[in-house]
Design a protein around this nucleic acid. Structure first.
Length: 289
DNA sequence: TATCAGGCCCTAG
DNA sequence: CTAGGGCCTGAT
């Protein structure tokens, strides 16, 4: 177990910001903790506990205000989770860049000041955001879990809990098999992508190494089922291009209402995507998911 | 029962 | 190139 004190980090906010669909709160009494050691059962008062699955890894994290317990060993924390949660980045500096005149963004950033842009796995993000289109959060989660349980490798975490890894491209390349997964019309997009990646027509490593975000965006939108919005989500969440600025129906409304003369992209060059997350979370959180 | 959800594809004009 | 219809499904 790893204990840390971390500012600008809030699991609930990140889970509800809609960037990751495999992060869920564990209700306390629903966890009998059978077989777990005494240490596992220790919750500090008023803490929340989250289960996070990332590609083929799993960890549980407890939070109470700015205190955290990661239920993994020091090495795994340093080598993987610290980076995954983007803990080396100072988000206070991003917030400081917000214009003092900009009341709306000030409030949004205050409301969601624990949001970070996770460094998720590219393939996983492509799949989950293909599913996200014209869809709601609850159903997106269901679809993703269903894919993992049906086609992902079953694994056992260090604490003894079982979970399902994200299935790879080959496992999701047959549209007929995906038909029963409740994906709706999106199944054909997933299957096409799975085929394209497993056969090498889409090269994930090459996408990761490409320098020009505009070219990455072009290549992504050339993929069947990926439009402007989903491409930007993939760049922001799967490639950590935090300048990417996905415009969905929420953001569109926000921009019309609060930035009729256009959002000041210049000012937020290098962190526009972070601001997008603050605004999205603020608005969707207020309206009640 | 109708509507809607963090869009995208495809076809007309 | 822009506009608009149609789309799977489950939750409300």
């Amino acid at each position: 177990m790893v204990e840390k004190q971390i500012s600008h980090f809030d699991l609930r906010q990140i889970a509800d910001s809609g960037q990751c669909f495999r992060m869920r709160a564990l209700s306390r009494d629903a966890e009998p903790d059978c077989g777990g050691g005494a240490e596992e059962g220790l919750l500090f008062d008023g803490a929340v506990r989250f289960a996070v699955t990332a590609a083929d890894r799993y960890v549980e994290v407890e939070q109470r205000e700015d205190r955290f317990r990661f239920f993994c060993c020091e090495q795994e924390f340093e080598e993987f989770w610290s980076r995954y949660f983007d803990l080396e980045t100072d988000y206070g500096k991003f917030i400081d860049r917000i214009g003092k005149r900009d009341r709306y963004l000030q409030q949004a950033a205050c409301f969601g000041n624990g949001i970070r842009i996770l460094r998720q796995d590219l393939w996983e993000v492509m799949v989950t955001f293909l599913i996200s289109q014209n869809n709601n959060m609850k159903r997106i989660r269901q679809c993703v879990e269903r894919l993992c349980e049906n086609f992902g490798e079953k694994r056992e975490a260090a604490g003894g809990k079982t979970y399902y890894a994200m299935p790879g491209p080959e496992a999701l390349s047959d549209v007929d098999v995906l038909k029963d997964m409740g994906l709706g019309y999106r199944d054909k997009y997933i299957a096409a992508l799975g085929t394209a990646v497993s056969e090498g027509f889409v090269d994930l490593d090459r996408l990761r190494q490409m320098k020009d975000p505009r070219q990455v965006h072009k290549e992504l939108t050339d993929i069947y089922g990926i439009g402007d919005k989903v491409a930007n989500c993939i760049q922001l969440f799967g490639l950590h291009q935090i300048d990417a600025f996905p415009v969905d129906t929420w953001i569109r409304k926000i921009l019309e209402r609060h930035y009729p003369k256009g959002f000041p992209m210049r000012r937020y060059k290098g962190c526009a995507g972070v601001m997008q997350q603050y605004m999205f979370y603020y608005e969707s959180g207020r309206q009640g998911q």
